[in-house]
């Protein structure tokens, strides 16, 4: 199936198609990152380089605060590890979605683009995940991410505050668009999502618990709630094959 060239083209096109809304959402978020990076004393080129090599919203925002505070390299590594640990879980999930014989080089390429959104569109693809789909989605989305960073860093605060405020929900809108259609069909996913929201809110506002950083909070909630959901509602084989749309 992988050797069929028309299949490669179709998958690549599908990837680009699904990557466009991600790229547009990224533009807004990375624009904000660009503005913040420059105000932390990072140059336009350096901010753009960070976006090109990292492609992670939360990790990059945390990274520039470490740089601005002249933290140690070890602290930088630790912060990135904690905040981005969820990608390890997503990468493990994708390892089950690709052809078991897929070569390492293709796996490394797919790995580079494991972000919340690209993961979302990849894991909900029907059947085996083609590396061509990933290539199309990653090239498109990363282009938006890097371009937005450059524009934000370069043009600074040209955009009116009302527009920046409205763009602030773009990323979350995409998250909602990934979760809700699945939660609508699968009651167990809905329950897991509701538990995650409650847990995350408690962690954010409860005394003592609120001292935990947002990256660590996400990891704890993800591991605990996913484990509980897996214990109470194990996924049956038949459902697994029927869940692709």
């Amino acid at each position: 199936m992988r050797s069929n060239p028309s299949d490669a083209v179709t998958n690549f096109k599908d990837g680009v198609r699904d990557g466009i809304p991600i790229a547009l959402g990224y533009l807004a978020v990375s624009f904000a990152f660009g503005i913040q990076a420059v105000s932390a004393g990072i140059s336009v080129m350096q901010a753009t380089l960070i976006s090109l090599t990292n492609v992670t919203s939360a990790g990059q925002f945390a990274g520039i605060s470490v740089i601005a505070a002249a933290g140690s390299y070890l602290e930088m590594a630790g912060v990135q590890l904690i905040i981005n640990l969820r990608y390890m879980l997503m990468s493990a999930a994708i390892s089950q979605k690709v052809d078991p014989k897929l070569p390492t080089i293709n796996r490394l390429g797919i790995a580079f683009g494991v972000t919340d959104e690209i993961f979302g569109v990849s894991i909900t693809r029907p059947g085996v995940l083609s590396p061509w789909f990933s290539l199309g989605a990653i090239v498109t989305a990363v282009f938006g991410w890097v371009l937005g960073t450059f524009l934000g860093a370069f043009s600074g605060e040209i955009l009116p505050a009302s527009l920046i405020s409205a763009l602030g929900v773009a990323l979350y809108g995409m998250f909602v668009a990934i979760v809700i259609p699945v939660a609508r069909d699968d009651r167990n996913v809905l329950l897991a999502a509701v538990m995650a929201v409650i847990c995350s809110s408690v962690f954010t506002y409860a005394p003592l618990l609120s001292r935990i950083s947002s990256g660590t909070r996400i990891i704890i909630v993800t591991v605990v709630i996913s484990a509980i959901a897996a214990l109470i509602f194990p996924v049956k084989e038949e459902e697994k094959t029927a869940d692709g749309e």
């Binding site: 919340d116 894991i123 990934i178 996913v189 909630v221 996913s226």
Partner: peptide, 14 residues
């Protein structure tokens, strides 16, 4: 099952 729930739980919590 754990890996199946991870993305939806993470995105909801975020």
């Amino acid at each position: 099952s754990f890996l199946y729930y991870v993305p939806y739980v993470t995105l909801s919590a975020m």
